[in-house]
Design a protein around this nucleic acid. Structure first.
Lengths: 254, 254
DNA sequence: CCACTCCTTCCATCCAGTGGAAGCGAAGGC
DNA sequence: GCCTTCGCTTCCACTGGATGGAAGGAGTGG
């Protein structure tokens, strides 16, 4: 009577991936029961699969018994072919050296921006975005820069949803946001003023290759220094242009 | 007659991991057949599992059809709990800003060093080590710094193997290497002179927490500037000490 | 035209994976 | 001290999903 009743239509691989998928930026450390809940699998199944993943150091456990992504998975992730990041990094570094501000690189993934690289020092403003984290597009500089470069149908579809509103300054009204995006597209860069985080404002420029924005380069400063933001736009756009150039050269070589 | 004869003693999870394990720093892009060969699985099995992994973007394919680690796996890897790297990074950045040289952070994993972070600019010497890559311990600065801090039995065991010899300058003779390690331990830092790569030399200092070297901080310069290396030792050791301090504080907070 | 490599699909066989249930140990309320 | 709750671990009868050999394409080179 016991056991044996599988959930049909799910392969073992999908179960493993469901377990891994239970981890995200907001939930980096989970108990066994958490994983079972978030993955929709039976506790005993999770227990066994997790043990195998732990053997391989795909997952590890904290002293208090919770699980987190392990060293081996990190190592594997480093093999991901991100030519873009490799090519762009030196210019991020240079832009940081020239300005001393937080600099980051993001791509669009679905309806969100995914931060792929970041350069920051000890004195820069602490910001939320880590590499590997996601944020919605409309409240972030890099997001607006990327969104503004998309086709009309994409923008329309993006705006038709209910947009999150992380701060009172976030622009969520479709008409106003659409105008803002047209302006961003015309100027070639985007700015934000406390639209994602109170106390921070930013500027961002798209990295355009063959007419398509493959990434965006962003810079963040604390909001009481908004004035200085304008001064950063030129070096920012110059760096973005350099990255475009270098990346294009890299693609043909491949 | 056909099919059905499984290889017993291997779980599906282990097959998935065998596929992922086929990718490493030396083989970041593989054909389906390569993966089958390297994982020891049947081609048809690999074909199906890889398709599932690709659906999830754990793997992706290049235009020419070869596979590489995908975006989702990279993203997942970023969740790995590397407090050490987070805490240390600002000091790497600062050390780089002060010196303009390649700076990196490595930990010991088994008998190898694993590079976990790196800061470099556009003008620094190109070096092999990427984050996520491994190198043997005895020819690298960070490796010697970490090895010298290990217990005697560990060092003896390390030296008892046949040691790789990437360049003619690599020290592989056990007696000489043992003496070198004692000197490194006494001085508190290691140096190398073209022992891993011709044309590069380095200095490295361990990050010691509670008497254990949890990581090593290294700096690499081109070998025609060996003279300047000595000048870099003080800031290097100061940074390593700062990291130790910050990391210790971080651990107790947890 | 044949030989070779790599990829894809098909399918008969069967055992590894599944999840419910019960047992454990620790923490907390009363 | 007793009882409840919560999370983890182990056990096990049952079965349908996973497996790898074989055959068929597709592309390349001699």
């Amino acid at each position: 009577m016991a056991g044996g009743s599988r959930d049909p239509g799910r392969s073992v691989t999908s179960r493993v991936l469901a377990i891994l998928g239970a981890f995200d930026t907001g939930h980096p450390r989970l108990t066994l029961t958490d994983i079972a809940r978030r993955s929709g699998l039976a506790l005993s199944t999770v227990h066994r699969l997790v043990a195998e993943l732990e053997d391989w150091q795909a997952l590890s456990r904290t002293p208090d018994g919770r699980f987190h992504v392990g060293l081996r998975l990190w190592e594997l992730g480093q093999l991901a072919a991100n030519r873009l990041q490799e090519v762009a990094h030196p210019w991020l570094q240079e832009l940081f050296a020239d300005t001393g501000e937080n600099v980051h690189l993001a791509i669009r993934d679905g309806l969100e921006v995914l931060y792929v690289d970041k350069v920051y020092g000890r004195r820069a403003v602490p910001i939320l975005s880590r590499t590997g984290s996601r944020l919605p597009m409309h409240p972030t500089g890099v997001g607006k820069a990327l969104l503004a470069a998309e086709a009309d149908w994409f923008i329309t579809s993006y705006l038709s949803r209910t947009l999150e509103r992380p701060t009172p300054h976030t622009i969520t009204e479709p008409g106003r946001l659409a105008r803002e995006l047209r302006r961003v597209h015309a100027r070639g860069y985007a700015t934000t003023h406390e639209e994602m985080t109170l106390g921070s404002c930013s500027a961002a420029a798209p990295v355009v290759v063959d007419g398509r924005a493959v990434a965006a380069l962003g810079i963040v400063v604390s909001s009481h220094r908004v004035r200085e933001l304008q001064r950063l736009v030129d070096p920012l756009m110059a760096a973005a242009a350099q990255i475009s150039h270098a990346y294009k050269a890299e693609i043909v070589r491949d």
